[in-house]
Nucleic acid binder design. Sequence first.
DNA 1: GTGGCGATTATGTATATACATATTGAAACG
DNA 2: CGTTTCAATATGTATATACATAATCGCCAC
Lengths: 246, 246
Amino acid sequence: MSVIETADAEGGVSLHQRILSDISEKILSGAWAPGHRIPFEHELSAQYNCSRMTVNKALSQLAKAGLIERRRRSGSFVRQPQSQAAVLEIHDIRVEVEALGLPYRYERVARHKRRSDAEDRALLELGAAGPVLALECRHFAGKRPFAHEQRLINLAAVPEAVDEEFLAIAPSPWLIGRVPWSEAEHRIRAVGADKRIAAALYIATGAPCLVVERRTWSAEHPVTHVRFTYAADSHTLVARFRPSQG
Amino acid sequence: MSVIETADAEGGVSLHQRILSDISEKILSGAWAPGHRIPFEHELSAQYNCSRMTVNKALSQLAKAGLIERRRRSGSFVRQPQSQAAVLEIHDIRVEVEALGLPYRYERVARHKRRSDAEDRALLELGAAGPVLALECRHFAGKRPFAHEQRLINLAAVPEAVDEEFLAIAPSPWLIGRVPWSEAEHRIRAVGADKRIAAALYIATGAPCLVVERRTWSAEHPVTHVRFTYAADSHTLVARFRPSQG
DNA sequence: GTGGCGATTATGTATATACATATTGAAACG
DNA sequence: CGTTTCAATATGTATATACATAATCGCCAC
């Protein structure tokens, strides 16, 4: 390798930028699937004939953007690609269904109390392990399933949920009446239905679904994480706003 | 300055991180107003007793986050608060793509001026027939299509759009700079890709997609209707809020 | 087996250095 | 007087190096 050789004659783009876009191209194109281990820093620096620092700069940015996950001693791995933006609005399913003029019905499918596992903690953004309540429910519009609900409740924040079976009342209205929320985060995306969702919503596996995930905090404490899944033809989120000034 | 003196005994947080948060604190608190020139890299490196590279790392991140603007030979300056209405920022696709660290590219696929048909009037909520501009565009992240855009512009509300080809600039930024909007409505849903969308986004027919439609009004006049379609694996909308009313 | 423990390894952060690039301001020139 | 040139300056990108840190692997003792 030459000493201090600047500007790799790469059309104005800096090297770490080129490395970055090469790798993200591989990821977004699917050539490197989620879970795939991307080459080590020292391998890439050999491949691109540059220093490890340059590779590190690119990989750090990819990690910050959420495309890859880095693990010491193990390497860097492709994550589920996702970009971020913001949208607003909150919804109550009973109200939505009744607005359609259809009879609403609620069904609790499952309920488990357990000590939070790693996935639970990730979903709730919990630091330490603790008791959680896991719920699975369905919401019907007329005879058709309208939405599937998977929910986690942090029992450290809402201990009285232990005594509720959620057979007659859905978790959302129960929580809203009890726990004032100070912050909420929504994630909205499209997915293909997996087998479980397909069965729950009476649709084909792989059929497009809208997924709305919501995380709620009350005074800095994570309260609940919920994932609603709707069949594509059953649901449109609507949000109206006026501009706010800076 | 000492030689290779690691871990400045600063409670686990890295130095560049501390510099970054110190400066953003100054900016967000208002102590350094927009337009204020923040200290030069060499001044900060003296102040923090560290190398210029470390300061550079912090400032580069601040620039990428949009808090400051850097000008060669002149220094770094606090930017005007970018608190554009959440909605606008949301669907500025260029910003989303660049936040991923990927090169953004825009392409106009088609442009037609016509008298509004029934479908156009439904989409724009127009009462009477009138001239509209129909556009089809694509937004790329790296080499992959990131979003497909179908747009209608009400020429009665924005007559000067007739003279714009939209080859170099995308409709969103063009409109934002020209037409103040007073109200917007969003509709978000999942669909299976039809043939046209599948071809445009390099995905299979029927593959799940996220569709975001936006209608905008300016002083009661419908301005534009736009439909963005994203491949399922490329996009997640994220929104955080605090309760403002109820 | 299995439980601990040290060696190994990949990433994380920092350093000093080198040169490129863009921009500014002032000096030199026609 | 305007223009051109040039040096100074701040940022931009890259290098080689050094050491910290965390996680894993394999070895060894029990």
